[in-house]
Simulated assay, not measured.
Amino acid sequence: MRDGSRWSRLVTHRAVRTFGPFLPLLLAWWVVAETELFPPAFFVGPVTVLAEFGDLIKKGILPAYLSDSLTRLASGVLFGLLIGVPAGFLVALSRRVRKLVWPLLLFFQAVADIAWLPIVIVWFGFSLTAVTVVIVYTVVFPLVISIVAGVEQLPRDLPRAARSLGAGRFGVFLDVVLPGALPALATGVRTGLGYGWRALIAAEIIVGTSGIGFMMFDARRGAEVTGVFVGMITLGVLWFALDALILAPFERGTVQRWGMVRTAEVGR
């Protein structure tokens, strides 16, 4: 019983649950590389990639490119939030506005961000503005749609009850609509950031002169597969850290604040 209890505690430990699934993948990667199932020019192992990580950090290349990518992401996401959050609540709360713009939202949501790159390059050239525009476009639409969905899920009795107690329009919005839509808003931010991160890498590959996407594309041009692996792993680790340290706590905080923590934790 004691051994079973220890094993149960070990399996359910947060670190084991977080990093455990990566161990079989890492082992399989190492085995495939060591057996040279693919030529080393096309497939390298974790030891080689780790050495390249250290080399790029030592030379200052990886930190500089990573800083550039994060700066572009932060700029694009900031403008995306400043546009998407007010637009989302405007569409959700105004029937006239929704009837007018909803078909446009669905249309542009279906147009991939990378499809805008050619014309954005014509408009803004190979600049930070071009990358920012693509990220903003990618963030805004899922954010708006998520906010609309969150407002629609509010029980109709809540705004009515608030108005019966003397709350005005702004009071209903501040005390009922906004808190009720926060979980959906958090989901929209999380989704928009994920799309924005992918859009950033695509933009850096095509129009960038620095950044993780540019580093991967530059390594591909030089037939250096190791650099591509470094970029891919950097992207995955960075997003994992961003989600775990910022996005997931924000989502949990909104759920816990408004009394739905049990529902949210059922699937965890």
Rank of each mutant, 00 (worst) to 15 (best):
164 S>G: 10
156 R>M: 11
148 V>I: 07
174 L>V: 09
128 L>V: 09
62 L>V: 11
100 L>R: 12
57 I>D: 07
258 W>C: 09
180 G>S: 14
143 L>I: 08
91 V>A: 11
206 I>C: 01
200 L>P: 03
161 A>D: 06
173 F>P: 04
169 R>N: 08
80 G>L: 03
255 V>H: 08
2 R>F: 04
160 R>V: 07
81 L>K: 01
226 T>K: 07
222 G>P: 08
38 F>A: 11
66 L>V: 03
168 G>I: 09
53 F>G: 08
109 Q>R: 09
154 L>V: 13
81 L>C: 04
122 V>R: 12
136 V>M: 07
209 T>W: 14
108 F>I: 12
174 L>S: 13
236 G>V: 10
174 L>P: 07
84 G>S: 10
231 G>I: 13
141 F>T: 05
235 L>R: 05
179 P>N: 02
4 G>R: 14
132 T>R: 12
116 W>F: 05
163 R>C: 10
119 I>T: 15
94 S>E: 04
100 L>S: 13
254 T>F: 14
43 F>V: 13
26 L>E: 01
128 L>W: 02
206 I>R: 00
129 T>I: 11
207 V>P: 04
140 V>I: 15
88 G>I: 00
135 I>F: 00
133 V>T: 07
240 F>K: 06
184 A>P: 01
154 L>N: 06
42 F>G: 05
85 V>R: 02
43 F>E: 07
5 S>K: 11
113 D>M: 04
71 T>G: 07
3 D>S: 15
99 K>E: 14
240 F>P: 06
1 M>K: 11
230 V>L: 11
176 V>Q: 05
202 A>R: 05
